[in-house]
Design a protein around this nucleic acid. Sequence first.
DNA 1: AAATCCGCCAACCGCAAGTGC
DNA 2: TGCACTTGCGGTTGGCGGATT
Length: 301
Amino acid sequence: MGRGRAPCCAKVGLNRGSWTPEEDFRLITYIQKYGHANWRALPKQAGLLRCGKSCRLRWINYLCPDIKRGNFTKEEEETVIRLHKLLGNKWSKIASCLPGRTDNEIKNVWNTHLKKKVAKKDANETKKKPGETQKPSSSTTTDSVSDNQMSKIEAEQSDDHSSNNPSEPISDLTSVPPPIEPNMAVKNSIWEMNMDTIPMILSPNCSSSSEVIQTLEIPEFTMEPEIWDMLEHLSSGSDESCNIDQDVLNPETERELNKRDDWLEKLERELGLWETIEEPQGVMGPFHGVEGDPISTYFEN
DNA sequence: AAATCCGCCAACCGCAAGTGC
DNA sequence: TGCACTTGCGGTTGGCGGATT
């Protein structure tokens, strides 16, 4: 299944197109454990048949825990419109002002909704006041970008214009701390994000960046409940099976639970390898897709 | 119910910028 | 300084699914 243009160079043996849950799983677990210092080397070390670029894109645009999913709020839309008026198609700059939103997402939203919306609005304004140009307003009160931040951007733009030097780059907007307020709504969206692919795995040795994730509530999981059970079990770091009061269960559920326990036992044996994973060495990493690799084994069965 | 249309958005590409040697 | 390599950016594509005919 291929998307986009034909590949510019032969990438024999590399997967293309949509990511499978297994690939997501590998990427998430690898990055959570080792980070992503070198995207080019990452696919090999993680046992992924993808190019580094593809991995990076998948992580940044979809799997990264900081990403906020769901529709844009009115405020976010307003912000995008205002920033686009100031910056043009500088999607990454705009994204830096919208915590949790990616440049790709903003670009898509702009191209599919906002562009039309703005065009329509402009057409209306022109009808009303012919000859009068619209001035960017900074009086919107419920903006998701702070007034300070917007003023700074506007000042930068103004300086830029006054110096009459279009080649001069705009100073980095990321230097202005974005108004990130971590809350459960955002955190839950992380889970929503992964619901249709694979949840974050919480290995007992997970790095600090994933500790935040560990505090999240676990939502209902509709896909492959076995996977969810497995992850939940692993994340607890417990040797015990899930604590469910078997007395209140009906026989059918109990049978299912027993089945699951057997299954978990089997998995535990396979995933025992998680405990013995070494730091990546050379080009071959711990998740290299070799026979006996627990992830491959799981997804094959 | 089937066929067609159309919008959405994930993933691709080429190129530019950044970094290290 | 120049080169090679990696990462980041913005434009574009096309598969998928919902809406319409």
